[in-house]
Design a protein around this nucleic acid. Sequence first.
DNA 1: GGACTTGAGTGGTTTAGACCATTGCGATTA
DNA 2: TAATCGCAATGGTCTAAACCACTCAAGTCC
Lengths: 262, 262
Amino acid sequence: MGENLPGDAVENGKKSPRTPKHWELKERLAELLRAVSPGGSLPGERALASEFGVSRTTVRKALAELTAEGRLTRVHGSGTFAGEGKLTQRLQLSSYTEDMRSHGRRPTSSLLDARIGAADPELAALLGIRSGDDVLRLRRLRRADGEPMAIETSRLPLPRFPGLDRYVGDGSLYGVLYQHYGVELGHAEETIETALATPAEAALLGNEAGALMLLLSRHSFDTDGHPVEWVRSVYRGDRYKFVATLVSPQSSDDSVHARLER
Amino acid sequence: MGENLPGDAVENGKKSPRTPKHWELKERLAELLRAVSPGGSLPGERALASEFGVSRTTVRKALAELTAEGRLTRVHGSGTFAGEGKLTQRLQLSSYTEDMRSHGRRPTSSLLDARIGAADPELAALLGIRSGDDVLRLRRLRRADGEPMAIETSRLPLPRFPGLDRYVGDGSLYGVLYQHYGVELGHAEETIETALATPAEAALLGNEAGALMLLLSRHSFDTDGHPVEWVRSVYRGDRYKFVATLVSPQSSDDSVHARLER
DNA sequence: GGACTTGAGTGGTTTAGACCATTGCGATTA
DNA sequence: TAATCGCAATGGTCTAAACCACTCAAGTCC
């Protein structure tokens, strides 16, 4: 369609619709992929390279993008398979466990390690303790139907929850906080951004190093407004999607439509 | 074709510390990068390759990841430069314009095109109209301090907003809806996931094809609960970060800590 | 039967080199 | 002076080839 781009970069009398080979190949593979049901296998890289008359490097670049988009799953030594789409996670102060169950998934969670260390100044400020105070660091691996989905690293202020390290396990952390300390969560501040998997994360997630990830940071407070935890979670970008329900800041006065202006 | 589901293998115990060269190089480059102020330049690919004794391909792979993380900016024909960190956008029913202003940024928005087309069944359902009804499609390019940040594609039901296509421009769409139709936004459902830039999007954003993107889909309703728009936005993953404030579903009864269980 | 070995096939990493496209600047020219 | 040209440097794409690491099943051995 005619796209008139006002003052944009369309000078150069010779505008080449430069389309890299690997991109064109990607679209042809996507086409080919539509005929494959989830879990089905694709030809090997070498076969694709000779079939489409390109080098294996180019095939790999196209496959890499399809993989990053979650449309392919690749298993070293085994093959390339059609992906299975994304799960969604509600952006609210609710339970991973419940969210997954409501999607008909079987959620599990395992504690990777629990360590006590000293808070640096930044972390101390976040947790409302003094620099150098003890902090409990928990790392959990979350799965859905047995498939690794996310790595969650929580940090909690031990001075506020003495003995907490003796209570934690594979079960509910929030349950422990409630039963032993009477603490309930009130609100949290959460940020979402993109990231790439580190080799260690990739190994745990059955993912590839450098894979697309969604990085969530959550700063939770109890019902009295005191900080409870600082959490950093990495979710597989090829399998996850977050959902939020947004509500208009106020009912109706003059300022509303100004605040909603776009 | 494969019958079994791949990718469920999770090893434990023996883990060869296999560290690819490009990853090790990436960390060394990150170190080198700390000594460079934002906007400063790095040596060329060929220079780095010979300096670190690796091939240019390996250098490019390391640089590609750093770029995807927003820590580098690369300009074809010019060089490689240190990045400038991410902006944040509040996840609420507020204005892009106001958000940017509150961060001291100068936001601008330009209308790329406005077209009228027929709704397919799915879109019609989302917008509360009949399949085949007219839909106004708006594409906007959003910038901060002149730098392209996002492409936003909105779709609105024309039967509900007759003549809307004559009112829209570079200005506030929500303002137009309020002034001409008395419509204010009530709530919206928003999903966030990762995506890769298409060549067209990349060209508009001054980005690279295949770059990391945050894909936002928003379904907005007015204060009466009627659908107003369906928006699909792609934000630069290397420059953007989203923030949400989460509130505990309800005050206090027995079910609360159960719902908060993790 | 059960445990082990082996090897073919797969994806993963790395190399060296060629060529293309864009940029920016210095030298040249009108 | 001002515009243009040329060219070197930069990043982008692509190839061909080698080797590594992992998987899986067929074959072998006890």
